[in-house]
């Protein structure tokens, strides 16, 4: 049954944009997948290992700036900067993870908030990174490798492929030794340690993996949007968005972050389109209200709610 649902979901994902067309909606679909990648990447450390990071935008920024620098410094297609961004993110995760992952619970979260703010201010003063002005990708596509398309469909399928890869990896990890270790750590660090699990090391692995995939999302963001500055690349709100999406769908579940993104991104884009022009800020009231309702009535996330119905029926 579950397999059937999955097959249908994949089929819908593949043909959806071809049936339900319109440039704007195609873009919303592509953005949804992009944020689903970021939220699923966050899920590795924040969901499975239970280490709630609010500084993940830093890794997103590594990817975005890596791609931007590849163009601005060396004139390469932005996507060529992806390895640079991912490398920087993984390295940063290792450097930051060693001291901060010793902190538990809220203290780890607070450290990540501080890190994100620190990096944002730092980036705003580094000329190579465009300082406060920001960096742009190629204004006019020079070759197909710039991945600069008028239609959002190529992005949609690119993001879909990356997301599928990430979810496949997550699915595999869930079943591997690491998956069990992480769940044990999430349950109780002390108990996990007493069972002989190398807690520190596995938390670090999870953070590095999570950072690397988040950087992939960042690089893809730059390829699509073509511009990054300190606020859009390393502004803390984006971290919060990743967290909310994962929590909304169900943190620590394979499809939770994707479901969160499927709800929140279209909600945000479409409510902004319908209500934003009035300039009354209703968008955020609606957006916040829905998050609040779910948090109050279904704190386990939407997936938990669906699972509940499933069991009843």
């Amino acid at each position: 049954m579950a397999r059937f649902v999955l097959a249908v979901a994949i089929a819908i994902a593949l043909v959806f944009p071809l049936v339900f067309s319109g440039a704007f909606y195609e873009r919303v679909a592509a953005l949804t997948l992009l944020y689903a990648i970021a939220a699923s990447a966050w899920n590795l450390i924040g969901g499975y290992a239970g280490q709630v990071s609010v500084g993940h935008v830093v890794f997103f920024g590594c990817g975005a700036y890596g791609a931007a620098v590849a163009y601005s410094e060396w004139g390469l297609p932005p996507i060529a900067g992806l390895p640079l961004g991912v490398g920087a993110a993984v390295l940063l995760a290792a450097l930051v993870g060693v001291p901060t992952l010793r902190l538990s619970g809220h203290y780890f979260t607070m450290a990540t908030v501080a890190l994100a703010e620190l990096i944002r201010i730092l980036v705003g003063n580094v000329p190579v990174l465009g300082a406060a002005v920001g960096l742009m990708g190629p204004a006019v596509p020079r070759s197909v490798w710039d991945l600069s398309f008028t239609s959002s469909l190529p992005y949609y399928y690119l993001f879909l492929a990356v997301l599928a890869g990430l979810l496949l990896f997550t699915w595999w990890m869930e079943r591997s030794r690491m998956g069990f270790y992480l769940r044990a750590i999430k349950g109780s660090e002390r108990a996990a340690r007493s069972l002989g699990i190398p807690v520190g090391r596995y938390k670090l692995y999870a953070l590095m993996l999570s950072a690397g995939f988040t950087a992939v999302a960042g690089a893809l963001y730059l390829v699509m949007v073509g511009f990054v500055d300190p606020d859009s690349g390393v502004g803390i709100l984006l971290s919060v968005k990743m967290l909310i999406m994962a929590a909304l769908g169900g943190a620590g579940t394979l499809f939770g972050p994707l479901i969160g993104a499927l709800i929140l991104v279209p909600l945000e884009e479409i409510s902004n389109s319908l209500l934003g022009g009035q300039g009354s800020g209703v968008t955020f009231v609606v957006y916040g209200g829905i998050i609040l309702l779910i948090a109050v009535f279904q704190p386990g996330g939407i997936l938990a709610m669906v699972a509940g119905w499933w069991r009843k029926s």
Binding site: L31, V228, D231, S232, E269, N272, G276, G277, T283
Partner: peptide
């Protein structure tokens, strides 16, 4: 026709 950029380049 007004549109809100919400202060972000993507929006």
């Amino acid at each position: 026709v007004f549109a809100d950029n919400q202060g972000t380049p993507a929006a």
